[in-house]
Structures are given as C-alpha cells and as structure tokens.
Amino acid sequence: MKVLVTVKRVIDYNVKVRVKSDNSDVDLANVKMAINPFCEIAVEEAVRLKEAGVASEIVVVSLGPKAAQEQLRTALALGADRAIMVETDEALESLTVAKLLAKVVEEEQPELIIMGKQAIDSDNNQTGQMLAALTGLPQATFASELKLEGGKALVTREVDGGLQTLSLNLPAIVTTDLRLNEPRYASLPNIMKAKRKPLDTKTPADLGVEVKAHTQLLKVEPPAERQAGIKVDSVEQLVDKLKNEAKVI
C-alpha cells in the first residue's frame, strides 16, 4: 500500500519564540527549525508499516518555502522513499494546504495518509480534518494506535474522556498523537542515502490551486507575563499562605 505523509517545517519545539517589536508577527530570524514533532511521529509510523511489509511506498509532502526541503530530506533519511515539495513563499492557511494536498492525493492515490494532529506553530489542529472533508475520506484524529486489518484501518484515538476506537474504510486519513510511537533518529549512512532519493518540486499553480487569504493577522502580542512569586520554607507556611493570603483553600 502507498502511504502519504505530510511534514511541516516549524520552529524547534525547545525554542521559546519572541514576538517582533512592531507586533506584526513572531520573530523567526535565526531560529532553529525542525520537523513538526507530530509529523515526525507520522513518518515513523509509516516507516514501521513499511518494515512490517504493509506499506510498499512512502511519499512525503511538505508545503511552504524552499527551506522546507531540509525537513523532507530528514524524512527521506528516516525511511521515506520519495518527496514532493510544494513551494511557495506566500503564507499558507490550513484550508489552502488542505486544497493543495487534495490535489496531491488525487495524483498519488495513496491508500493511507498520515499527518500530524497539530502544527506547533499555528496550533491549528485542522489540516488533516479539512483534507478529509475535501477528499470525502474518513478520518481518525489524535491516534495512539493504528492497525490495518481486513481492508480497514482500526485506530485508537486519545479523546477527552479516555480512548476511543474507530474502524475506517480505506483510503483514510490518520492524524498522530504523541503516544503513537517514539520516532527514531536518522543514521549517518541513511542521511547520505537520502540525498540521492527523488525530490519533486511543484508550485500551487502547477496543482491548479489559488493561494487565497481567508483571514488577516491583525497583530501578535506577547502573553501577559506571570511574575515569579515567593519561595516558602515549609508545608506549614504554604498552607498558611494558601488559606490566608491567596484565600484559595
């Protein structure tokens, strides 16, 4: 089965972003970038399916600036077979990403699409669901376990009250949660090999999709900073402060 995986280039999850002084956006100049952690989990899941003999080919897709090729190469080093870069310098909203991906899905006809549940920059948590709607495919978001059996995907999802299991007809879209797997590191020989794997570049125009803005970012501000409080020396003092100063117990 062919598996399509999406990877987004985002700020490294360890970096704390700063807001630009003109409040126009966050400052990404000279910030360490990486594969979105949830997309890394998506790649790992696909690679495990290939190792298990279930997946035959893994195609990774990224959309955005040319620099995202770096993340595609990382995905290739982790075990993907080939990559598609949809290149544009325009800001891409989730709906546009979903429309572009729908075209890629139409061309590639994968039987399974694995995406991150959330990009840690936008915190949107919507692109996979939108792609599912546009392609008319079933979805299982926030997956913590994925099994392919009898032509269906059996997916356990992390939901507010616990866990839920769904059965989806294939092709299907699965978005990953953190517990699905623990991604491996790319080995040096695999990083070298990845440089020779095919990477196709397309533009939104090639895919026949217009990049349209549905929203306008008016301003970006830093959050209200919390002041560090005091250190107490004992449990007695803590209980006293909570009762008599903060009055929360």
Partner: peptide, 11 residues
C-alpha cells in the same frame, strides 16, 4: 499560537 508564547488577533 506557539504554545501560548504569542497571542494573535485574527480577522
């Protein structure tokens, strides 16, 4: 956005 490290106003 960004894990609450920035607050966006969106129209």
């Amino acid at each position: 956005i960004y894990a609450g490290n920035a607050i966006a106003t969106v129209q």
